[in-house]
Amino acid sequence: MNATFYLSAAIAVLSTVLVITRANGVHALLYLVVSLLAVALVFFTLGAPFAAALEVIVYAGAIMVLFVFVVMMMNLGDAAAVREARWMEPKIWVGPSILAILLTAQLAYMLDSNTMSQPHHAIVPARAVGIAMYGPYLLCVELASMLLLAALVGAYRLAHTEHGRL
């Protein structure tokens, strides 16, 4: 199991790096799907099979498909990829990288300094998650449904124009 974790973690990080460096939108999206699948595997190794399934279905499935649709609709061709590549000149990476390294260093330092005991990982089955969700977290579920409804209406209104076309 340990090997699975380390391997999938490495894949996740690597493919994420590729996501943010690709000039071609479709390539980046495919790497993002890979990254999300790797994270789903990590979920599985951490004993969260339900979350892993949702990660695959919702994230890698639904959301990424949405992205693909949009990218296809935008019809970003080779010209767009060339322009993307031109935008990513080396010096633009300096500032963000410094910020990210600082952030990582800080979080790593905090993790290193914690005194938590070693893990006792246990599988949390979907049944327990369902009971928790429709028990103490019922209000959160309602809120989430409201949020989704609002997003639905919002997205429809934003993408819609008076003349029925974009």
Partner: peptide, 16 residues
Amino acid sequence: AGWLAAGSILTIAVAV
């Protein structure tokens, strides 16, 4: 977004 990130980093730095 950059300023936001910098501000967060600063805040965390204070906490650290």
